[in-house]
Amino acid sequence: MTTDTAVADATAAEDGAQPPATPSRSRRRRRQLWIFLAPAVLLNLVWGWYPLATSFVLSFTDARLRGDVTFTGFESYERMINDPLVAQAFRVSIIFAVLSIVLTFVVPILVAILLMEMPRRTMRWMMLLWFLPLSSVGTAILWRYVYNTDYGLLQSIATGLGFDRQPFLNSSDQVLFWLVIPGLVLYGPGLIYLATLQSVPTSYYEAAEIEGAGFWRKIWTISLPRMRPVILMMLMFAVIGNLQQFEWPMLMTDGGPGGASRTAVMYVYDILNQLRYADATALSILLFALIMLVVAVMRFAIREDPDAPPRRSLRELVTRKGDH
């Protein structure tokens, strides 16, 4: 090899007998790494994984507040699956999640895109507003008044416009819709979208403009593709969060009317209040399984990285193999 002649003079000095690499420094570094990681790992184990494992075990028992715990196999699961209220709770959770994503997920994306067109100063003010710590409990209570059928803001608007008196949260058909609406004013994700958009090189937009792209084409061919990984991540979070919805229905309707807004987590909470630990854990595990399933399907179905080369189709892979 040509290289050898070129460096021969340099190698000559160290003829052969090389001691094996002495990675003592890297070993020390690895030890340091573990020392720094230890607290986090420990906390995670104690507060995260241990409860998860315990509840998994408990779901197969007849755990009560007091007394012996005996292994009962799938008894709790059977009971839960046959409980009509569980089916209802799951239905509520799923409808809530779907409604919430359909109605509120797109809005922050649009707002972020439109804000990018605004002058810097306006953008800064909007970001400030988004950063303001909004207590979701406070907001929920406020909205309860907005929805109040007797003296609520919305009722007075409705009647003022000549409509009949509306039931709002008291209608079991409409309650989930009204519960989702307040999510519109929570722009939390918008901030993340805005940050993503700001990281897109301006030259992309300039090039597109020179190439003749109009406003919508720029959004469609640049903004959205660049935001795709973040949108998908936020979608995943939204699905997970909404399937576990608890505080809004809890605070605004307490699951009513007639269980029409009782979500799965709320039902877990109710069962817990009845001290049925085994049932509560079994139901939690069922919910956990559902969410895992949804997440797994999403991850499988959607490709996150917009810049990755297109996936080879199965057929292409097969024919390629044949070539070799």
């Binding site: 992309y204 597109a208 403009e209 810049d307």
Partner: peptide, 28 residues
């Protein structure tokens, strides 16, 4: 800019990473 009928090559090339080479060239 789009009505000036010019073409520009940028320092960072500004080719779109999420589009194939074909679509990048076809963009305009």
């Amino acid at each position: 800019p789009r009505d000036r009928d010019i073409a520009m090559v940028f320092q960072d090339y500004a080719i779109f990473p999420h589009l194939s080479v074909h679509e990048n060239i076809a963009y305009g």
